[in-house]
Amino acid sequence: MGMDATQLAHGLFRVLETGDPALAVEVVGDDFHNREAAVSPKACSLPGPAGVLASGAWMRSAFSDLRFAVLGVAGNDEQIWVRLRMQGRHTGPFVRFRHGSLDQAVPPTGREIDFEQIHVLHLRDGKVVGHEAVRDDVTMLGQLGVFPPAPATGLNMLAWRVTGRSARAAADVTERAAEAAAQVRSR
Rank of each mutant, 00 (worst) to 15 (best):
L155R: 11
D77G: 06
R135H: 07
G48I: 07
T18Y: 03
S186G: 00
D65F: 04
E112A: 13
A38W: 11
F63K: 03
F68L: 02
S55V: 00
T139F: 01
L102N: 07
K42C: 08
A152I: 05
T139A: 12
S45K: 13
Q143E: 09
T174S: 15
M59Y: 09
R124H: 14
D125G: 14
A43C: 08
E116P: 09
A22Q: 15
D103H: 12
L141Y: 14
P21S: 01
R89T: 05
A38S: 13
P93L: 02
R83A: 14
R161N: 14
M3G: 01
G92L: 01
H119A: 15
D114R: 11
A180F: 09
G92M: 02
G92Y: 02
E179F: 00
L158E: 07
L158S: 10
M140W: 09
H119D: 13
T18K: 03
G48N: 08
G56T: 06
G75W: 09
L155C: 10
M3F: 13
A62V: 04
H99E: 14
A9R: 07
A57V: 04
L155N: 10
A181Y: 05
A182I: 00
H122D: 14
V27T: 01
W81E: 12
T91Q: 06
G100L: 14
A50I: 00
G88M: 12
A5W: 06
A105C: 12
Q143R: 09
